[in-house]
């Protein structure tokens, strides 16, 4: 813009823009930027919750301990399994529900309303509700499965190391599929109708229409939705914490980090774990943006 005459109007607008942004930027810097910086900083120290202002630098020690802790790797594994499986199922199911909602059939309104309910329920409440349903002694799940003769004796769903993670995934699928379905539905509703009419007139098989026309067209929106859900899943905390506490069989990276930070008061070590989690999220984003060519519309 240099060299051109600046009208006072444009200048005034730009100045106002920065002025308007300032409060938000200050707040974000205060609640996000600075704390993040402190977390990374703490990760190179031996700070504890009690001695947040008296600590010593320990270099990479925290990280070296971390990579040698099998529980940490278990948490990484749990998080990845949880993310891949739950997001995968949610995408498939969400796509199915979105297609049903998009087809103009009776019962659509009811279905949409019903599907919104899990989304509206707080995660903690969902976890408790399912925790109760999966209760080993009095849970309705055991009662139904035994009634149907599918299992012979009650299972300890949330305590059994082999079953706990699947249970957590099942609850997440229940809770998050609606979000997926709604986002996909929005994408579906933006597709031109005459496209489908043309395909129907040409007698193209519906499955082929879906694979050849629908899927490529909603792909960008689908990818963004998947990315959002993935980032959300990678930082999961509430579900595991409420359903299974700090149990190792389901512990996510967030649960691990918080356990050290708060329960064990080892801020330095916990911060190192939290920092690694940020790196994993950043890597996932970069991967999605480059490999999946996800285009997040950040201002035209």
């Amino acid at each position: 813009m240099s060299g051109l005459p600046h009208s006072s109007l444009e200048r005034q607008r730009r100045r106002a823009a920065w002025l308007f942004l300032l409060p938000m930027l200050v707040v974000l810097a205060g609640v996000a930027g600075w704390p993040l910086f402190r977390t990374v900083f703490f990760s190179f120290t031996d700070a504890t919750l009690a001695t947040l202002d008296g600590f010593q630098g320990v270099g990479l020690d925290n990280y070296l301990w971390l990579v040698r802790d099998p529980v940490w790797w278990r948490a990484v594994w749990n998080t990845l399994v949880f993310t891949v499986v739950s997001v995968g199922i949610e995408t498939a199911l969400g796509l199915g529900i979105a297609l049903i909602l998009n087809a103009h059939l009776p019962g659509r309104g009811l279905l949409r309303a019903a599907v919104l309910i899990p989304w509206a329920i707080p995660t903690v409440v969902s976890a408790q509700m399912w925790g109760w349903m999966f209760h080993d002694l009095y849970g309705v799940v055991n009662a139904i499965l035994m009634g149907l003769g599918l299992i012979a004796e009650p299972r300890a769903w949330t305590a059994d190391p082999d079953l706990a993670l699947p249970v957590v995934i099942a609850v997440d699928v229940w809770k998050s599929t609606p979000f997926m379905a709604l986002l996909i539905l929005a994408a579906l509703q933006m597709l031109p109708r005459d496209l489908y009419e043309a395909a129907r007139v040409d007698g193209v098989h519906p499955v082929k229409v879906f694979v050849r026309i629908t899927l490529p067209l909603i792909r960008p929106a689908l990818m963004v939705a998947v990315l959002f859900r993935t980032l959300d899943a990678l930082r999961v905390f509430d579900l595991m914490y409420v359903l299974t506490g700090n149990s190792r069989s389901t512990m996510s990276m967030s649960v691990y980090a918080r356990q050290y930070l708060i329960d064990f008061q080892d801020v330095g070590y916990g911060s190192a774990a939290a920092t690694l989690l940020v790196l994993v999220l950043a890597a996932a984003t970069v991967l999605a943006v480059t490999l999946g060519r996800v285009r997040v519309d950040a201002g035209r």
């Binding site: 609640v31 996000a32 704390p35 703490f42 700070a47 930082r235 916990g270 939290a274 989690l277 999220l281």
Partner: peptide
């Protein structure tokens, strides 16, 4: 920022 994992700011926020 909206994608931030919350534990990542926990210690800094705790201090604040």
């Amino acid at each position: 920022v909206s994608m931030f994992p919350q534990v990542a700011v926990l210690s800094g926020l705790f201090e604040l």
